[in-house]
Design a protein around this nucleic acid. Structure first.
Lengths: 150, 150
DNA sequence: TTGACTACTTGCAATATGCAAGTTATTGCG
DNA sequence: CGCAATAACTTGCATATTGCAAGTAGTCAA
């Protein structure tokens, strides 16, 4: 039963004030950031799309993480205006602010994974002009949002 | 039994090539990054010091994470030259390269945690001159290392 | 030889995860 | 209207990981 599933790593109040601990309480598990990756770079927005992410997240875990992200205000959920029978998941501004974190994960991974599939051009660009990459990525992301995004 | 404890989130080969997934395979759990935080910002270097980190990591989990970090080449372990009966844990260059990731976690946490204890001066500095903060932090870190660090 | 100190290891109950199999709610037809 | 199809979850259960309390091993100093 997952109803009472506590955070992957924060069952008790750990309000130590440490910003790192605070952040890890929200996304300190494997799946959360992969969902955010899909939202930012893969253009995924539906439950079914997240399930097909190659990495193989379990449906119950996906449902748990999405609802957690929603209650944290990182992701918003609403009926898809183009298709009433689907739900649209999108990053909020708070969620978009995680982009710098994700970019650093990419940089480290691309540097140390001998089999990385990260496009060299992107990595080089990221190293030489981080600010521009952030700006462009957010612009692309926002361009895709149906109407009011926030 | 923790002997065969697999990575917190990578039991099977997920060599998809995705740099984010690669990085999360290494530090995609709550504790790993807190240990790295302690190494970078708290000046901790001994097993016993990590245990007292306020957040309350379990001894078995600490042992597991340290050995994992060591086998990943992120942390080095050796007998303390100043006290033969203690082991000294230190970040390798690969581990130090995680500093940018940690800094972004700090930034996001300090921004969204209403009760953050992050010093405003540090956060402001981080926002205005990231490169300098990285440089200084690494310099301080290296100054503490006994002899050869790498 | 013993006691203190550090770094772990072990056992076990409580949690969380992975997987397969339902359930519920909306259309889209005939 | 009635029914199949689609999307989004929920539920059960076996397995894996965690948290906690205790126990063990190696080093040093008196």
């Amino acid at each position: 039963m997952l109803k009472a599933m506590s955070k992957p790593s924060s069952k008790k109040c750990r309000h130590t004030g440490c910003p790192i601990a605070f952040t890890l309480d929200v996304l300190g598990d494997r799946w959360t950031l992969l969902i955010i990756r899909d939202l930012i770079f893969m253009g995924k927005r539906y439950y079914g799309e997240f399930l097909e992410s190659g990495e193989g997240i379990a449906t119950n875990v996906l449902a748990d993480r999405l609802s957690r992200l929603e209650s944290e205000g990182i992701v918003s959920k609403r009926v898809d205006p183009k298709d009433q029978k689907k739900y649209l998941y999108q990053l909020t501004d708070k969620g978009e602010d995680l982009l710098p974190v994700v970019l650093e994960l990419i940089l480290w991974g691309a540097t140390y994974d001998p089999k990385t599939a990260a496009p060299k051009a992107f990595i080089d660009r990221l190293k030489s002009d981080r600010a521009a990459v952030i700006k462009e990525t957010l612009a692309q992301l926002r361009a895709k949002k149906p109407k009011e995004s926030k």
